[in-house]
Design a protein around this nucleic acid. Structure first.
Length: 258
DNA sequence: TTCCAGGTCGTTT
DNA sequence: AAACGACATGGA
C-alpha cells in the first residue's frame, strides 16, 4: 500500500535521533513499534508501506495537518528557514510513551549508537520476537517484563540500570502538557529533559522543547541564549505549539554543524 | 591514560 | 537559587 506525502522526508525523520527502533536495508526501513514490525520506503513523494495500514502509518509518521501548519509557520522564521533547507521534511513521530521514556533514560551521558544498542539489548532480552519477511526483531518490553536482574546486567546500561529496576509500572495520565511534565518527572531518572522528550515524541505535545547539550550549543550560536530555562521560554514564545518541530531542525543542524 | 558523552539527583555553597 | 560531583560504560 502507499500514499502521497509532500514536503516530507522519511530518512530525515527516522534518522533525526528521536527514534531508535529501525533498521535500514537498501533504502527500505524496517520499523518495530506498537507491537509489530512493518516496512516503509519513500520514492519521491510516495510512501510505500507494508504490514501496517495507511491510517496507522500516517499517524505514526505524524504526517498530518499540524505537521504542515508547523512547516508553513517555521519557514517564515528568518533564522530557521536556512536550517530547514539543509535538513528538510522532518516530522515528529508518534511513539509509545514507555518505550520513548526508556530510550531517553538510556540517553543520559550517551550517544545515538550506544542508545540504540541498549534499547535493542533490552528488547532482545525481554521482548517478544516479531518477524516480517526475512527480517526479525523484538518488541520493546513493558517495565514489568524487565524482571531479571542478571539479564538486565548483560544489557550494560551502566548507572541507568537502576531506573529500570525502580520503574515497576508505567502509565501516563494528564490533561495538559504541564500536567504531563509533572507526572512524568515522578519516575526515577526522568527529569525535565526526558519528560520533554516523552511529551514531544509520544504524547503529541508539540510545544515541548527538550533542551540537551546540542540544543544549548545551537541556541547559543543561532540566537545567543544559553541557559536551559531561558531557551525553553524563548522557544515557547517564538514558535508556540510548533516549538517541538523547531527543536528537531535545530538539533539536526547542531549535529552536522557544531 | 584521560576525557567526555541526547541528564538526573542529592549535596554544598 | 546556582554550582558541583557521582553515577557505569564505551569510544576517541
Amino acid at each position: 500500500m502507499q500514499f502521497t506525502a509532500n514536503s516530507f522526508s522519511l530518512k530525515n525523520t527516522l534518522e533525526s535521533g528521536q527514534f531508535f527502533r529501525y533498521t535500514e536495508d537498501n533504502g527500505r526501513y524496517y520499523i518495530i513499534s506498537h507491537g509489530k514490525m512493518f516496512s516503509l520506503e519513500q520514492k519521491n513523494n510516495t510512501l510505500i508501506h507494508e504490514n501496517a495500514d495507511t491510517i496507522f502509518v500516517k499517524r505514526f509518521l505524524g504526517v498530518n495537518r499540524k505537521y504542515y501548519e508547523a512547516l508553513t509557520k517555521l519557514q517564515q522564521d528568518s533564522i530557521l528557514a536556512p536550517v530547514m533547507k539543509e535538513i528538510a521534511g522532518i516530522s515528529i513521530l508518534k511513539q509509545e510513551p514507555w518505550e520513548c521514556a526508556a530510550a531517553f533514560l538510556c540517553s543520559q551521558c550517551s550517544n545515538i549508537k550506544r542508545i540504540t544498542k541498549n534499547v535493542n539489548d533490552l528488547a532482545k532480552n525481554f521482548g517478544k520476537k516479531v518477524v516480517f519477511e526475512d527480517h526479525e526483531g523484538f518488541v520493546f518490553p513493558k517495565p514489568e517484563e524487565i524482571d531479571n536482574d542478571a539479564k538486565l546486567k548483560t544489557c550494560k546500561l551502566g548507572y541507568r540500570e537502576q531506573y529500570f529496576q525502580r520503574i515497576k509500572h508505567f502509565s501516563i495520565n494528564a490533561e495538559s502538557y504541564e500536567e504531563a511534565m509533572n507526572f512524568l518527572q515522578q519516575y526515577a531518572g526522568v527529569g525535565e529533559k526526558i519528560a520533554d522528550c516523552v511529551c514531544l515524541f509520544a504524547l503529541g505535545y508539540t510545544q515541548a522543547f527538550p533542551v540537551d547539550v546540542w540544543i544549548r550549543r545551537a541556541m547559543k550560536h543561532l540566537f545567543g541564549i544559553e541557559k536551559p530555562k531561558e531557551i525553553k521560554q524563548f522557544a515557547r514564545k517564538r514558535w508556540n505549539t510548533h516549538a517541538g518541530y523547531a527543536q528537531q531542525y535545530v538539533y539536526h543542524w547542531a549535529r552536522s554543524n557544531l
